[in-house]
Structure formats: C-alpha cells, structure tokens
C-alpha cells in the first residue's frame, strides 16, 4: 500500500502536516463506518477495513520516522521487521551514557534537561535523514536506514524517560 498515493501526496520526506490532517478528515468523512450504520454487513466490513487503512496511513505519514520508513519501503528497502543493529560505536557509547543518566534521575529538573538533550540530538538525526532521503544515491538510502534505526533508539530512550517522569509524579 502506498500511503502517499492514498493521501494524494507525492512521496517526499517533507510534507505539509496541516494539509495531511485536512485530507485525513476528508477521507474519514468518506469511509468511516458511522456513515454506513444502516448499510449492509458487507459494506460495514468494507468501511471498517478502509478506515483502518486510512488510519494507518495517517499515522505512517504523520510520524517522521514512520514516514521515512515508508519512503524506503516504497524504494524496496524494508526495515520494519529487521534485526540489523546499529554499528556506530560512538552512537552506542552515547546511548549507554544516556541509559546511565536515566538511572540517576532524582528530580523533575533532571527529566527536563534530558528531554532537551534527546530532542536536540533527534533534530540533528532528522535533518541528516531528510538530506539522505532526498538523494538519488542508493548508498545514501542505506545511510537513511541507519538514521531511522538510531531514531528508533531515541524513541525508546524517550519512552523510558516518560515512564520515569510518571513514576516521579505518582
């Protein structure tokens, strides 16, 4: 399934999220099962399936990491179920340092400063990713795949931070 096509976009990393949201609402108005409450079971099921696709497509295009993954998938590089890991040692060292920092959190201020560090680094990665995806060179695409893997590490770190923040408040 080409989600860019579904939402009438040409496949590019930079998309207008406001337009995306508008088109999402238009598509929902067309396919949502609530429009078929009085229709036959067949139509209801079809509506559920199409709406599920629209929902999934929206999430895939809205989220930059998933959008990048989808672009690579359309170019024949599927990294959604892979087991390859990142080999960049500097990156891995940094990850370990951040993991340790997570364990040493004692206050909400610690959380805030880590949030900032994480998001600064994510911005850097995303900028590089954008550049690599814009290239026509297949080697650059595998660099992009690496950026995505790194961003996934960052998402896990971020989730962990959120969990710790919750525990601080409870």
């Amino acid at each position: 399934m080409n989600y860019f096509e579904l939402f009438n976009f040409s496949p590019a990393f930079q998309i207008d999220l406001t337009v995306l949201a508008e088109r999402y609402r238009e598509l929902q108005r067309t396919v949502h099962p609530d429009n078929f409450a009085n229709a036959s079971e067949q139509q209801k099921l079809l509506a559920v399936q199409r709406t599920a696709q629209v929902n999934d497509g929206y999430q895939a295009l809205k989220n930059p990491v998933r959008r990048a993954e989808h672009i690579l998938f359309l170019r024949g590089i599927d990294i959604s179920h892979e087991t390859t890991t990142v080999k960049d040692t500097a990156f891995l060292m940094q990850q370990m340092e951040w993991r340790e920092a997570l364990e040493e959190i004692t206050s909400v201020d610690d959380v805030a400063s880590l949030y900032d560090e994480f998001s600064d680094y994510q911005k850097l990665l995303t900028a590089h990713l954008s550049l690599m995806l814009a290239s026509d060179n297949v080697n650059d695409w595998s660099m992009a795949a690496d950026d995505i893997r790194k961003l996934k590490f960052m998402i896990k770190l971020h989730d962990e931070l959120v969990r710790i923040e919750d525990a601080l408040y409870d």
Binding site: N8, S10, I15, D16, R23, E26, R29, T30
Partner: peptide, 11 residues
C-alpha cells in the same frame, strides 16, 4: 473523489 481537486504537490 474526496480528494479530487486537492493538488498532489506537497509544499
């Protein structure tokens, strides 16, 4: 039809 008239261009 729902997206008809909506340009394919992104930005």
């Amino acid at each position: 039809a729902a997206l008809k008239g909506q340009s394919v261009d992104n930005i």
